[in-house]
């Protein structure tokens, strides 16, 4: 690991100023990914700005009924928080499907969003990687890519984003709050991460000098039936092969009133299934309709040599989750099955 300076920020402004003054600086939250990447030599920041003790460690309801999650709230605390468990079940489930108890105790909300891909070529300095070192090529496209993208990838990069949490945030229409020390702005969660295009080194829309201060969960999706389902090689403690986050409510006549659907592990970002959502709004909430809509979404898939299995896997996960959600009665504040 390269030597680096360290500063513990007391305020958001202090953190933003340190980031602005040192272009090679990185924010340190729980460090569960960044410290590992520093050990591997993938990240070599000259300065770490420790934001883990900023006063952004609360989950609170806002007057408009939305819920604001501070950037330094730990993943385990967020998953267990009553406001999240009772109103945004998909988020709690997604967090608990990721990593281990120890990692969730350290990992922060902001850090989870900013974690890097687990593409083995990105983590291996002996391999070419356009994300790690632009212009060097991609070892995954023709190499080991069983875990890689089937949607939205580019010639330059076929990596996936590893977060489970971010997939739930996309389906919930959450917003990511950013602050550069002078102004704040909010970006929809499903627009925060980018597709790789010809700039795979840029994972997100965050600008130099900005830090994540929080995430807002909107009132509009509070207490709607929602669920997260993840397929992985082991029963626990493994990244997704494919995952789905779904929010679904139905009207009295059995049609879809609200639907939010996002896939994990299929793309460089959580993949918001906008085509499927558009097809489902007002449509009958039936297994056939879900299958038709999800297949329409996945028509855009362009699997690589060894990851074609992800397309039917994602389809089946999504149809199953939506069908189960449709069987529930929309009853605010509860998760009880219709009986």
């Amino acid at each position: 690991m390269e030597p680096f300076g360290y500063v513990r920020a007391g305020t958001v402004r202090e953190a933003a100023e340190a980031l602005a003054e040192h272009p090679g600086a990185r924010c340190l939250g729980g460090g569960t990914n960044l410290v590992d990447l520093m050990k591997l030599g993938v990240e070599r920041p000259g300065l770490l700005v420790d934001v883990s003790r900023l006063p952004l460690d609360t989950v609170e309801e806002l007057p408009d009924g939305s819920v604001r999650v501070g950037a330094t709230v730990r993943n385990s605390d967020l998953a267990a928080h009553p406001l999240v468990r009772d109103r945004y079940a998909v988020l709690s489930q997604a967090l608990l499907a990721g990593a281990s108890g120890q990692l969730r105790n350290a990992a922060t909300t902001g850090g989870n969003l900013l974690q890097r891909t687990r593409c083995p070529h990105f983590q291996d300095l002996s391999k070419p990687c356009n994300k790690r070192t632009p212009g060097t090529g991609c070892a995954a496209r023709e190499g080991t890519h069983r875990d890689h993208a089937v949607l939205g990838h580019s010639e330059q990069c076929v990596a996936t984003h590893p977060s489970d949490m971010a997939v739930a945030l996309a389906a919930l229409d959450a917003r990511v709050e950013l602050d550069d020390g002078r102004t704040t702005r909010a970006v929809p969660a499903d627009r925060f991460h980018r597709l790789p295009g010809d700039q795979p080194e840029r994972d997100t829309e965050i600008r130099p000098g900005e830090l994540i201060t929080g995430v807002v969960l909107p009132a509009a999706t509070a207490s709607l039936p929602s669920a997260y389902r993840k397929a992985r090689d082991r029963a626990s403690y493994a990244f997704a092969l494919a995952s789905v986050a779904a929010v679904l409510s139905t009207a009295e006549d059995g049609t879809v009133a609200h639907v939010g659907l996002a896939f994990g592990a299929l793309a460089h970002k959580p993949w918001r299934a906008e085509r499927a959502e558009a097809a489902l709004r007002g449509a009958p909430a039936t297994e056939d309709a879900f299958a038709h809509a999800v297949e329409r979404e996945l028509q855009a898939a362009r699997p690589l040599r060894d990851n074609g299995y992800k397309v039917p896997l994602a389809r089946n996960l999504a149809v199953d989750v939506l069908t189960r959600l449709a069987a529930r009665r929309t009853r605010p504040g509860t998760l009880q099955e219709d009986s």
Binding site: D36, L48, L103, A106
Partner: peptide
């Protein structure tokens, strides 16, 4: 009081 991985925690952050 919370279980964590000691290998990933920079000691300087734990003052």
């Amino acid at each position: 009081g919370r279980r964590v991985n000691g290998c990933l925690l920079l000691a300087v952050t734990l003052d």
